[in-house]
C-alpha cells in the first residue's frame, strides 16, 4: 500500500505524517509536491496539518486552488482514500469534498492539548479496527477547529453516520466541557457519504509511538492498512 503526503507551502505536519505512517504501517510513503499534476500510483493520500499559504485569507482557502488539488479531487471522486488532518480537514471543506466549515475556536485562542474522542462509526476504512464507542486520546493543535454546518447538513451527517469522532470526556460522555472549540454536536471528524474521505481536527500522527507516551493514533493508520490488505491483499 503506497501512501502520499501532500506538501503545500506552509504545511508543517507533512514530515510528522510521513514519519508516523512509516513507523506504524511499514508501508512505502512519499511526499507529493503541491505543484504536482498527478497522484497516480498512490493508494491513500494525506493532506497534513500546518498553515498552507500562511492560512492568509481563510484557512485552506488558497490551498484548495493548488495545482495538486485537481488530481486529488479526482482521486477522491474515484473512491481513493483521502485523509485530511487539521489544516487538511479545512482544505477538504474549502474544496467541497466535505460539507461545513471550521470557524475560530469559541475562546478565540489557539489550543494545543490532549482530547478524548469517541469513535462513533467503526464501519469505515479509517476506523475498522475500533470497537463501537471506543474512546481514544488524541491531541489537538488549532485555532480554527470549531466545526459548523447548517442544521439540515448536520442532520444528514448524523443520519448517514458520517460523524466518525466526537469530543468526549475520558469516560466517553459527550459533554459541553469536553468540547474544546465549540464544534456543533462535539464533532471532531467527519467522512463523506461514500466513506473514503475523512477530515479530522485532532492529530493521530502525534500519538502513534510509545516514546511520545500515547499510541492511540495508530488505530487509524492500522485500520487503513488492514482495509487495503483485505481488498487488495
Amino acid at each position: 500500500m503506497k501512501f502520499g503526503v501532500v506538501v503545500f507551502p506552509g504545511s508543517n505536519c507533512d514530515a510528522d505524517c510521513l514519519h508516523a505512517i512509516k513507523v506504524v504501517t511499514g508501508q512505502p510513503v512519499e511526499y507529493i509536491w503541491h505543484k504536482s499534476g498527478s497522484v497516480d500510483g498512490f493508494d491513500c493520500i494525506v493532506l497534513p496539518g500546518g498553515f498552507s499559504y500562511g492560512d492568509y485569507l481563510r484557512c485552506g482557502a488558497v490551498a484548495r486552488f493548488s495545482p495538486v488539488m485537481t488530481p486529488v479531487i479526482d482521486f477522491a471522486q474515484r473512491g481513493g482514500l483521502l485523509l485530511g488532518i487539521c489544516n487538511g480537514f479545512q482544505i477538504l471543506t474549502e474544496a467541497g469534498l466535505l460539507p461545513g466549515a471550521l470557524h475560530r475556536n469559541k475562546n478565540l485562542q489557539f489550543l494545543c492539548h490532549d482530547t478524548h474522542l469517541r469513535i462513533e462509526n467503526n464501519q469505515t476504512p479509517f476506523t475498522s479496527l475500533a470497537t463501537a464507542g471506543q474512546v481514544i486520546r488524541v491531541p489537538i493543535a488549532h485555532g480554527e477547529g470549531n466545526y459548523y454546518a447548517d442544521t439540515a447538513t448536520i442532520q444528514q451527517l448524523e443520519e448517514n453516520k458520517q460523524v466518525l469522532f466526537r469530543y468526549c470526556d475520558p469516560q466517553g460522555e459527550i459533554t459541553p466541557a469536553a468540547n474544546p472549540n465549540g464544534s456543533v454536536n462535539n464533532i471532531a471528524g467527519i467522512c463523506n457519504r461514500q466513506g473514503n474521505v475523512l477530515g479530522m481536527m485532532p492529530h493521530p500522527e502525534r500519538c502513534a509511538e510509545d516514546i511520545l507516551g500515547n499510541t492511540n493514533g495508530q488505530l487509524i493508520f492500522q485500520s487503513l492498512l488492514q482495509q487495503w490488505q483485505r481488498r487488495c491483499g
Binding site: 510528522d16 508516523a20 489557539f110 494545543c112 491531541p139 511520545l212
Partner: peptide, 14 residues
C-alpha cells in the same frame, strides 16, 4: 500560556 503554543509538532516532545 502553553496550551496556546503548539508544543508537539515535530513529534519529538517527550
Amino acid at each position: 500560556v502553553y496550551q496556546q503554543y503548539d508544543h508537539m509538532v515535530g513529534l519529538n516532545t517527550v
